Simulated assay, not measured.
Amino acid sequence: MGVRCIIVDDEPLAIEILESYVKKVEQLQLVGTFRNAVAAFTFLQQHSVDLIFLDIQMPKLSGIDFLKTLQQPPKVIFTTAFRDYAVQGFELEIVDYLLKPIPFERFLKAVAKVLHQPASQATPAAKEVAPDNYVYFKVDKKMIKTKMADVLFIESIKDYVKVKTPDKEIVTQQKISYLEESLPREQFLRIHRSFIVNLEKIDAYSATDVEIGKHSIPIGRNYKNDVMKILAKNIF
């Protein structure tokens, strides 16, 4: 049956665009569109859905207030023209935060987080906020804003990751595979099942490891060929 989804937005053009995007993804099944959150709330009292594409600023009831009314909300992707609500949205454990106008590639990236996420997995603790150069990591009940340029490397420790910067370590409950998908590939590279590194921070490397400052980070055997090809592009 695929992922059952609804669109909640007071702009007809925005609904039309999202509808066209949903139709391009076979795994998505659109079961309703609503011009306000009250109508969506009524629908959800009798129907179950897996995903909501939700605008924030709407008449009658805002998207954020609407989400707070749901006792067991489905996964939510905010679709909005306003970036000011990003932290508040992620505190509500949304999947992603899309800024209008939304390119299809960005839409697809957000949807992939739902399609590739097991039903039992908690909503990701780190969220990308495009188009700036920051990422938010959820630590306890706070969202910690971190400049991507400051991230040295990321280390996986079971169901947690440790994000290392020059002046701090951030430990958040997260899967490293989610971060690998979320962070910009031109800047971050997974070199080991337990490590992602910031390419701009690498000081030296060999066939077995990379050096970032005083840290020596191993290159996994299964990653070696791809890592060597990417690192070799910058050899002169």
Rank of each mutant, 00 (worst) to 15 (best):
M1C: 01
G2I: 00
V3L: 10
R4F: 08
R4H: 11
C5K: 01
V8H: 04
L13Y: 14
L13E: 14
L18K: 08
Y21G: 02
V22T: 08
K23E: 14
V25T: 06
Q29D: 11
G32T: 07
T33V: 15
R35E: 09
R35S: 09
A39D: 15
T42G: 01
Q46R: 11
D50I: 06
D50T: 07
L51E: 06
I52K: 08
I52R: 08
I56C: 00
Q57I: 09
M58Q: 00
F66T: 06
T69I: 02
T69L: 14
T69D: 02
Q71A: 13
Q71Y: 09
Q72N: 15
P73I: 12
V76Y: 13
I77D: 04
T79W: 04
T80H: 00
T80P: 00
A81Q: 12
A81L: 11
F82G: 00
Y85D: 07
Y85L: 06
Q88M: 14
E93K: 14
I94Q: 05
V95H: 03
D96Q: 02
Y97P: 05
Y97K: 06
K100V: 11
I102C: 12
I102K: 12
I102Q: 14
A110Q: 05
L115A: 04
H116S: 11
P118I: 01
S120N: 14
Q121H: 09
Q121W: 09
A125L: 00
K127S: 12
V129K: 03
P131T: 10
Y134H: 12
Y134V: 12
V135P: 06
F137K: 00
V139M: 05
D140A: 13
K142F: 09
K145N: 02
A149Q: 11
D150S: 05
L152E: 12
F153C: 01
I154W: 08
S156P: 12
D159N: 15
V161F: 11
P166H: 00
K168D: 11
K168L: 07
E169C: 08
E169P: 01
K175A: 15
I176V: 08
I176D: 08
S182F: 08
S182C: 14
L183M: 14
R185A: 15
R185N: 15
F188K: 09
F195N: 10
N198L: 02
E200T: 10
I202Y: 04
A207D: 15
T208W: 12
E211S: 10
G213Q: 09
I219W: 05
G220I: 03
N222H: 04
N225L: 10
D226A: 14
D226I: 08
I230T: 12
K233L: 10
I235W: 13
